[in-house]
Write a protein that binds this DNA or RNA. Structure first.
Lengths: 222, 222
DNA sequence: GGCACTAGTAAGTATTCATTTACAAATGTT
DNA sequence: AACATTTGTAAATGAATACTTACTAGTGCC
């Protein structure tokens, strides 16, 4: 039983909520995603995350080990979510060109719907992917989408609707560049060009223009 | 005159180097550029910057006010350097299409030669351009390159080598996307795809592919 | 019901960090 | 030469921060 002084704190304590380890861990992860995507790893604060999660700081160390462990878990969760959606994609019923355009639509749509992923990836690159390199969850971060690009390019070479010998990784990186950059760098671009690159109209128009650029290119590499 | 205890420190002091305020300020700015481009604003450390600069921490506050002031000065310097190079560009003697390709070559070349600018811009976007917004050096951060894009598109519309009505900012942002993303996100892409996107061969090939994509697109919007 | 273990709370600790204080030396001005 | 100002050094300070310690309460198992 508690001694005097400590017994006093018992009176101060609010009644504890029922235990729910999965729910606590989930809330911590969600709060950490919000925090790290807003200010990056070094800007993130453990006490701020605990507060947002309505959990004790101790629980962060209990579930994740340390701040870096939490951050890696956040990255893995975000990349795992992306992978889950990528695994739903099928492009078998489309022509190679249309299939590639559908992949572009998926990529740009996913980044539009998940600005936190854009921020997390940008932040992790700032740190030279030092934390992601430590991840041992390779299967959850690997992207099946490159495989789809490869398949489509092979199919296009076979039916001669696309030129043979195209490098899928180069094409993939260009497609992602056209989907990602206007989101990731919207803040500085808006300041430098005194134009709001964040409004929905601008973004929709930009996606359409970028999609058209890709489409024209795919038509030309026929 | 020094009192007793403090007089003792005189004996400890190394002989001071000759004063050179411009040189000290330059070394601090250079060291801060290195530090902030490596780890971002929040990851940057004043003592680390002072050490790299071979200057006293006090001097950082003397010249720049505070950490944020130093960071803004770093951003302004980097953007001013870019602007200086952009102001050297002329595309008057080129066809609109060739002129735009030359601008693409400039953009991608500048980012290749200045990886610290890529990191600084990515880092500042992570912070929602909060520091850049505070900059009052608007003339040095504004980019003349968009004006060149605009001129070329207008000239192309006039001589009918390019379609009329194209939005210069959308085209500009796409051109920068194709020049920047493979550099800014090379770290995470290398981990996810277990391919080194940092080697020179990969980058040269990627630039050529991206340039071709732009070229094809410009040909198609004739 | 008792015991062992885990989830969770509250508070504390050591270190880090940006910034300031106090002062000395170099330099410019009179 | 004396004085004023600026550049620069060294150390200190207060706040922030990640993480740990000590403990309590909830839960599972026997």
């Amino acid at each position: 039983m508690a001694d005097g002084p400590k017994g006093e704190t018992t009176g101060k304590r609010q009644t504890r909520v029922r235990r729910n380890p999965e729910e606590t861990r989930r809330r911590i992860l969600e709060a950490a995603t919000e925090e790290f995507s807003a200010v990056g790893f070094e800007g993130g604060r453990i006490d701020s995350i605990a507060r947002k999660a309505k959990a004790n700081q101790r629980m962060i160390y209990h579930y994740f080990g340390d701040k870096a462990g939490l951050y890696v878990a956040v990255l893995e969760q975000a990349l795992s979510d992306l992978r889950e959606e990528e695994l739903q994609l099928t492009v078998d019923t489309f022509s190679p060109r249309e299939g590639l355009l559908r992949l572009f639509d998926f990529i740009s749509g996913h980044f539009d719907r998940h600005p936190e992923l854009v921020k997390l990836l940008s932040g992790e690159n700032l740190l030279d992917a030092a934390h992601l390199r430590r991840s041992d969850a390779t299967p959850v971060i690997s992207s099946p989408l490159l495989g789809l690009v490869t398949q489509l390019l092979e199919r296009g070479a076979a039916d001669q609707s696309l030129r043979a010998g195209l490098n899928p990784l180069h094409l993939y990186v260009s497609m992602v560049a056209l989907s990602y950059f206007h989101l990731s760098n919207a803040a500085t671009l808006s300041v430098i060009f005194t134009t709001d690159l964040r409004c929905d109209d601008w973004r929709a128009e930009h996606r359409a223009m970028a999609r058209n650029m890709l489409d024209v290119y795919l038509g030309a590499i026929a």
